[in-house]
């Protein structure tokens, strides 16, 4: 059994000048490919303009509390958005 690609955490900044936000994770052999993969996996609907990746293993987390230019293309794929399909009124919610 060969070794698994490491896990990366993906952070994306949307178009409105907001902070980068954690969107999920993925596997990639290194940081450069993690960026490319993040572009393909997490911006399929034109979600982001800037991507950060960091190895999951490198994230330092607080102890859990006991209390507790590449993004134009997706614009064209209107069919990814549910409003692309007309749902007749008779049919109800879908």
């Amino acid at each position: 059994m060969s070794s698994e690609w490491p896990l990366w955490e993906v952070f994306i900044r949307g178009q409105h000048g907001l902070n980068h936000r954690h969107v999920g994770s993925l596997h990639a052999p290194d940081a450069e490919m993690a960026i490319l993969n993040a572009r393909d996996v997490y911006t399929r609907r034109n979600e982001g303009v800037s991507i950060w990746v960091v190895r999951s293993a490198d994230i330092v987390a607080s102890a859990p509390s006991d209390k507790g230019p590449l993004f134009d293309p997706a614009n064209a794929k209107v069919y990814r958005h549910p409003t692309f399909f007309d749902v007749p009124d008779e049919v109800g919610h879908m």
Binding site: G24, R45, P82, F84, F85, V87
Partner: peptide, 18 residues
């Protein structure tokens, strides 16, 4: 994960019905 999936999945049922 389900939030993201549900958001993306809403077009799936519609394309089938279409």
């Amino acid at each position: 994960a389900m939030v993201r999936i549900c958001k993306e999945e809403s077009f799936h049922q519609r394309q089938g019905f279409d």
